[in-house]
Design a protein around this nucleic acid. Structure first.
Length: 430
RNA sequence: GUGGAUGUAGCUCAGUCGGUUAGAGCGCUAGGUUGUGGCCCUGGAGGCCGUGGGUUCGAGUCCCAUCAUCCACCCCA
């Protein structure tokens, strides 16, 4: 009887054991940098009231209008799988009065996000992000700190072709003035733009800067940019951020045409890009959101943060195929005759209790097959329960890298009380 | 939502002008060479040829539909 196979949903994927090393490396690197910069881990639910995102990200943004996974629960409430992390963190910040408790809240998170987009290279419907948020300070040096953390992580992950672009997109008042000037500039030329740009002109004119058509870019070459409409204070804020970045040796490029997709961003904005990704070249992006806390019902509080797409980071990382024959310190227990299974199992457990990785065959395979398995397990040693040696109460300890082996008393190993004693027993074969 | 490409073993792919038992390499597995892995040799398992329909004496191969995947656009990490 044949039954239809159930497959993973369009745009979702399994992260298989073969990828485990790289995911673990990213997780430990992010956690390490978070420690160094003193950001604490926070985890929020992956679904929230729909209103959190519509109000936070912006009713008109593309993400909210057509990409959210929204559903009703049994109480007829509208819920949404989170499309990004910042809104949830800010909600949590307000709900738990983090501002009153500690003044400045510095947190980081990691987990799956959901957007109903058409999948392609570096884009999925369920994808993973990690992000940092600092809520409560308008000091330009916190901008520099969080950009530095973002950059530092990419550096540790070996992304050598990364490029950091920074800009300031000002506050709503400045944006309004700029938008008028921009519209005055574009209006007489509008017929010459591509269809998409003409549509953007109606909905979100600034996004015209993101157009990939050379013709449109040429037309916009001398168009007014927000950067030139910044107030003195915001201009000074941005200059100070740049000054601090210079001082700590982080290289960046000012991109006055950089705009961000989510509506809550204000003032400082940045992206990190890699050439390895093809069309979806942004691996990380962030900015200030100085009005978001207030918009979500908290006291007026400035905030800043970034998020990075883990799948995209992986695409940008070097040497994904390598690292096959690395041996971990660990033991594979080989059984030469099934009558020793019980003793072998006891030794296995002992090794594990001493803190070493160890494994054994569970498929009843031949000695030769077990040796093969021991080889592929990546462990440094194998213990072999061989006939002749066992009659003398000895097992063979074999170094799987240089093939040297010697006998060792089973009772001696079982007596070892800690890793040091075990280490001494096996020490001279290393 | 729009456009283009591709679906054959666990993976990467052959498969002639439509022709009868569907192939390779890798991987998996049993064994040989040494009571003991890697190199080498021999055997074995594993395929609704994405799915449904059509043309034909005959379809993995041609046509249509459908589903899925990939790439690009929109948008974003």
């Amino acid at each position: 009887m044949s039954v239809d196979k159930i497959k993973a949903i369009y745009g979702t994927r399994d992260i298989l054991p073969a990828e485990a090393d790289i995911w673990r490396k990213i997780a430990t690197t992010v956690a390490k940098v978070a420690d160094e910069y003193n950001y604490s881990f926070i985890s929020t639910p992956i679904f929230e009231a729909t209103e959190l995102f519509s109000r936070g990200i912006g009713e008109t943004s593309e993400v909210v209008t057509k990409e959210m996974y929204t559903f009703k629960d049994q109480g007829d409430r509208s819920l949404t799988l989170r499309p990004e992390g910042t809104a949830s963190v800010v909600r949590s910040y307000i709900e738990h009065s983090m501002g009153a408790r500690q003044g400045l809240a510095k947190v980081w998170y990691a987990g799956p996000m959901f957007r109903q987009e058409r999948p392609q290279a570096g884009r999925f419907r369920q994808f993973y992000q990690f992000g940092f948020e600092a809520i409560g300070s308008l000091d330009p040096s916190i901008d520099a700190e969080i950009i530095a953390a973002n950059y530092h992580i990419m550096e540790l992950l070996g992304i050598d072709d990364k490029k950091l672009y920074v800009n300031s997109i000002g506050m709503p008042g400045e944006r309004k003035k700029h938008k008028e000037a921009f519209s005055d500039f574009v209006a007489p030329l509008i017929g010459k733009f591509c269809a998409d740009c003409r549509k953007r002109f109606e909905t979100n004119p600034l996004r015209m800067f993101d157009c990939k058509q050379d013709a449109c870019m040429a037309l916009l070459k001398d168009a007014p940019v927000i950067f030139d409409y910044l107030s003195d204070d915001n201009r000074k804020h941005f200059d100070t951020v740049c000054d601090f970045l210079d001082h700590i040796g982080i290289s960046y490029e000012l991109d006055k045409k950089l705009v961000r997709g989510l509506d809550y961003y204000t003032r400082t904005a940045w992206e990190i890009k890699s050439d390895k990704l093809g069309s979806q070249d942004a691996i990380s992006g962030g900015g200030r959101y100085d009005l978001l806390v207030e918009q979500l019902g908290g006291k007026p509080t400035p905030g800043i943060g970034f998020a990075a797409g883990i799948e995209r980071v992986i695409l940008a990382m070097p040497g994904k195929e390598s690292g096959q024959d690395r041996k971990d310190l660990g033991f594979f227990v080989v059984i030469g005759n099934s009558r020793y299974k019980k003793e072998a199992f006891g030794l296995l457990t002992k090794i594990r209790k001493l803190g070493f990785p160890a494994d054994i065959d569970y498929l009843g395979r031949s000695l030769k097959a077990q040796m093969k398995q021991a080889d592929k397990s990546g462990f440094y040693y194998s213990f072999i329960f061989a006939e002749e040696e066992m009659t003398r109460g000895k097992v063979i300890l074999r170094n799987m890298v240089d093939s040297r082996q010697f006998e060792i008393g089973l009772a001696d190993i079982l007596k070892a009380g800690n890793t040091i004693q075990l280490g001494e027993l096996i020490g001279y074969i290393q």
